[in-house]
């Protein structure tokens, strides 16, 4: 770079008198704040969409794999309840029995469901963390 060369001087002269207006940073910062706001809103919508998909998968898993078990429990309870109308004592006994059966089935269902939900949540958390780390590294 030869500062005495005619080319350097001609380039230096080009737009020499031009300066940025004093409020330049202020204007850009406003635009950047708007960009940031849009980005946060977009991230929020993606987050909502992610959770919606996870919830759908969880419900689908529930219905697909445990729907029959739940249905059966419901029918058994209804039948037991109808039969128990014969006598109050019998009904009470049957209802307790039915409740026990339902509780046992529900407990089975919950035992199977909790690990699935936990896995889904951990997976979601892990993926989000991984994506965030990757973006920071970039």
């Amino acid at each position: 770079m030869n500062k005495q060369s005619p080319l350097y001087k001609a380039l230096e002269e080009r737009g020499r008198s031009r300066r940025l207006p004093p409020d330049f940073s202020f204007e850009i910062m406003n635009e950047i704040r708007a960009v940031e706001k849009r980005r946060k809103r977009r991230d929020m919508w993606w987050g909502i969409a992610g959770y919606a998909v996870a919830a759908f998968v969880a419900i689908f898993t529930l219905v697909y794999f445990f729907g029959d078990m739940f249905n059966e429990t419901l029918h058994t309870s209804a039948a037991t309840f109808a039969a128990s109308k014969v006598s109050t004592v019998q009904t009470t006994t049957e209802m307790i029995k039915s409740f026990e059966t339902s509780w046992s089935s529900s407990a089975d269902m919950l035992t199977s469901l909790l690990p699935v939900s936990a896995i889904l949540l951990v997976l979601d958390h892990y993926l989000r963390k991984k994506i965030a780390v990757r973006y920071k590294r970039q």
Binding site: R14, L20, S25, M29
Partner: peptide, 22 residues
């Protein structure tokens, strides 16, 4: 920290502008 970006802008805006004018 979005506001920190202003420091970079104050530091380089005139330099970038002078180049773009050229």
């Amino acid at each position: 920290s979005t506001e920190s970006y202003k420091i970079l802008m104050d530091r380089y805006s005139q330099q970038v502008f002078s180049l773009v004018v050229k």
